[in-house]
Amino acid sequence: MFGLILRRLMASIPTLLAVVFLSFFLMRFAPGSPFDGERPLDPETRLALDAAYGLDQPIIVQFGRYITGLAHGDFGPSLVYRDFTVTDLIWTGLPVSLLIGALALLLAMAGGIAIGLAATLRPNGPLDCRLMLGMTLLTALPTFVTGPILALVFALWLGWLPVAGWGNGAPVYVVLPVLALTLPTMGAVAKLTRAGLAQIMTQDHIRAAQGRGISGWRLISRHALRPALLPVISYAGPAAAGLLTGAVVIETIFALPGLGRYFVQGALNRDYPLVMGVVTLYAALIVLFNLIADVLYGWLDPRVRG
């Protein structure tokens, strides 16, 4: 198990380097500059600024410097939020995005698996059909449709919850964004659980267990559930990544001070270090999520442990 983790971490290094490389050069070859404001700067200020941030150096040198900084955990200065380093910005934004993403992931997994199980108890019964149609509906509802609708109903009409804002993470402010983010993923998890169980229930080892007189809930929980969750776990890694990046929209709708908004702003303003910092961080997080999913997979299925 330890060897597996180590090997996966080693394998992720080229991926991360590729991400850094790609985003770095993509940003640099784009037209426009971080210092293009409302009115053009005079050439001297411009040159001074470029020199101050090292933008007058050959591009290879800049890249080398950036990588060196990265290896020391330094994402460099923000070019637009002039008084902050990228690390500062990440530290203010990441907790918000991470909290919302993690809560949504937990809710989606727990709710989705429970709904999938409930649907499987009576396959093709009325409950099953209705639940699965409902779940398809959820997966098809984009967060930017559900978000405003939830806000409309619970905040504006019923007045139970605030419309938007962060309120320093007070629970009432977190409910709606998390809910909007949860729903599509929950639908997908429920459908995967249902499909996984339906497939496992026709397999030989289930019939063998039935032959031993095991039935009902015990059959599902002991013999079917763990292998049936394998597709859910493979989905969970990318889903976690999706929730994190999907939070961009949620943060916009509910006006949350998360990382996604810094990213969109940074991209629009050509704030190279900020954009690259966020992309690199997210790529690292995605690698981490996939690693966790792999470890879980090994726990569920002894065959991959070798």
């Binding site: 397999q203 030989d204 080892h205 019939r207 063998a208 267990a209 039935q210 032959g211 031993r212 007189g213 095991i214 039935s215 002991r222 013999h223 763990r226 292998p227 569920l300 299925d301 002894p302 065959r303």
Partner: peptide, 29 residues
């Protein structure tokens, strides 16, 4: 009914199937 049939199988019958490779639950030792 399903429950008493299940109990009856458990009590009096043993089964050996054609597919030994897939008739054991993969995640249980």
């Amino acid at each position: 009914d399903a429950a008493s049939l299940s109990a009856l199988r458990a009590r009096h019958a043993g089964f050996v199937f054609q597919q030994p490779l897939t008739s054991l639950s993969p995640h249980l030792n």
